[in-house]
């Protein structure tokens, strides 16, 4: 029993249920809401099935037409409508709107995927700081970061489960996802789209720095990569 409870734990370095940013947090909340609703509906369906099987005639008070209208239309339509509106509102909030997020402007980075590594570009960093980091993405904590993905070979998918949803890196396209890490720290990232034999090992790390130290640390990291 104790082990079952331990299993039910939701933590982990790549767990979507251990959110460390507003996007992942919102989605985790959506999940818990849906889970509660789903469990309730599941119990209801099983109870109805048990009722009609084990207590013949118990459900015959409601006409057959009544069963179909109430259960087939009356029950699902309001639930689905409410859920859909909730999810679409959330989806709108998560979009990388041009007006930016709180705490000033948005930081823009590029994630370039290839078999089997991630290369991160920082186009906004001032002059003389061209360069990339390999398999480590540096971001400031507490600020919105727009990650734009690219790929020059096959399709990959950029995913940092504790920060938010994933975005594909498709050759010929460069979509953007907005993420934010609430606190400084290390967050594990994965390639989510099957991209060949090295798919499993295409992990990367997101390093969120205190905002004040971000530029300095990023420059140091870039210089370090250069030196290698």
């Amino acid at each position: 029993m104790a082990s079952t409870l331990a299993l039910a734990g939701c933590g982990g370095p790549v767990s979507t249920l251990d959110p460390a940013g507003p996007a992942a947090d919102a989605i985790a909340r959506l999940w818990w809401v849906m889970l509660i609703g789903a469990v309730a509906l599941f119990i209801l369906m099983m109870a109805l099935f048990g009722l009609v099987m084990l207590r013949p005639g118990a459900g015959s008070g409601l006409s057959r037409r009544g069963w179909i209208l109430a259960g087939g239309l009356g029950m699902p339509l309001p639930i689905l409508t409410a859920l859909l509106i909730y999810a679409l509102i959330q989806g709108e909030r998560l979009l990388p709107h041009p007006d930016g997020g709180p705490n000033g402007g948005v930081v823009r980075v590029e994630a370039v995927a290839r078999q089997f590594a991630w290369e991160f570009h920082y186009p906004e960093l001032g002059a003389g700081a061209a360069g990339t980091t390999l398999n480590v993405l540096h971001i400031p904590a507490g600020r919105a970061v727009d990650v734009t993905t690219r790929s020059d070979d096959v399709i990959h998918s950029f995913w940092v489960p504790r920060l938010g949803g994933k975005i594909d890196a498709t050759p010929g396209h460069s979509p953007t996802i907005r993420l934010r890490a609430d606190r400084p720290g290390l967050y594990a990232g994965l390639c989510a789209e099957y991209c060949g034999t090295g798919h499993r090992d295409m992990g990367f790390t997101v390093e969120a720095h205190p905002p004040a130290l971000y530029e300095q640390r990023l420059r140091a990291a870039l210089a370090g990569e250069e030196a290698q």
Partner: peptide
């Protein structure tokens, strides 16, 4: 109605 009414609201190109 259920499928398309969102066109009055959601971000069209983002």
């Amino acid at each position: 109605l259920f499928t398309f009414v969102w066109l009055f609201w959601l971000s069209p190109c983002q």
